[in-house]
Simulated assay, not measured.
Amino acid sequence: MSELGDYYRERAQEYDAVYDKPERQEDLARLRALLPPLVAGRSVLEIAAGTGYWTKALATTARSIVATDLNDETLAVARTRSYGAADVRFQTADAYDLGAVQGRFDAIFAGFFWSHVLRADVRRFAQGLLERVEPGGVVILADNRYVEGSNYPITRTTDAGDTYQTRQLSDGRTFEVLKNFPSQDEVASAVAPARVEWTELTYFWLATIS
C-alpha cells in the first residue's frame, strides 16, 4: 500500500479534480442526497476521508464525525472546509487498524476506499468495519463502477484478479494505483452474514450494511 499512500499524499492539492468530471455530476448529486439521511443524528467514523469532500455531505445531518485518513496532507486540506454545526474532528489512522481510533460509532462510512483493498484482504477489511460499529448501527460504502472513457484504463491485472491503473499527477509524475471494481455479490460475500442494501448508479455504487 506504500505507493498508494504516496500517490494520495502527493495528490492532496489536486485531489478534488476528479469530482469535476462533467459526466459524473448527476450521480455525484444523487450520492450527496442519499448519504445525509443514512447518518442523521449518528456518530460517524469516516475511513479515508481525504480532503473532506464527503465529510461535508455527512456533516449536514450527522451528530459528530471522526474523519480519518492515512495521510495528514489530505486531512490538512479537509481542515480548511466549513462543516456547519456538526462536531467534526480529524485523525490520522490506518484503515486496517481502527482499534486505534477512540470513540463509539453507530455509523461508519468508507468512501472510495474499498476499491483500493486487495481482493485477498477485503474480508479482513470489511470485518474490521463491522467490529467497530455499535449494535444497531450501519456501515456505509460508496465507490466507483468501471465505465470506459470515464475511468482511468486498467493497465495491469494480477493472477489474484487485482487490477491497477497508471495515474499521472499535474507535474507529470506517474504512479501505479490499485483500483478494483467489485460486484454486488463480492461485497455481500465479504460482509456476510450482515445484510446489504445496494444502490447502483451509472458511475458509482452505494451499499448500506447492517
Results as ranks from 00 to 15, higher is better:
Met1Lys: 05
Ser2His: 15
Gly5Trp: 10
Asp6Cys: 12
Tyr8Asn: 11
Ala12Pro: 06
Asp16Gly: 14
Asp20Phe: 02
Glu23Asp: 01
Glu26Asp: 01
Ala40Thr: 13
Ile47Trp: 07
Ile47Thr: 13
Gly50Thr: 08
Thr55Ala: 01
Ala59Asp: 05
Thr60Met: 02
Ala67Asn: 11
Val77Asn: 08
Arg79Gln: 07
Thr80Cys: 03
Phe90Leu: 04
Gln91Met: 11
Ala93Lys: 01
Asp94Trp: 14
Leu98Tyr: 02
Gly99Lys: 11
Ala100Phe: 15
Gln102Pro: 11
Asp106His: 15
Ala107Gln: 12
Ala107Ile: 10
Gly111Val: 00
Phe113Pro: 01
Phe113Gln: 02
Ser115Ile: 01
Asp121Val: 04
Asp121Gly: 05
Arg123Met: 15
Arg123Asp: 09
Phe125His: 02
Gln127Ser: 14
Gly128Ile: 00
Leu129Ile: 07
Leu129Glu: 07
Leu129Ala: 03
Glu131Trp: 14
Gly137Arg: 15
Gly137Asn: 07
Gly137Gln: 15
Leu141Arg: 09
Asn144Val: 05
Arg145Cys: 13
Tyr146Lys: 08
Asp162Leu: 06
Tyr164Ser: 07
Gly172Trp: 06
Leu178Glu: 07
Asn180Met: 00
Phe181Cys: 03
Pro182Asp: 14
Pro182Arg: 09
Gln184Ala: 12
Glu186Ser: 11
Val187Thr: 07
Val191Cys: 08
Pro193Val: 15
Trp198Met: 07
Leu201Cys: 15
Tyr203Glu: 12
Phe204Trp: 06
Leu206Arg: 14
Thr208Glu: 13
Thr208Ile: 05
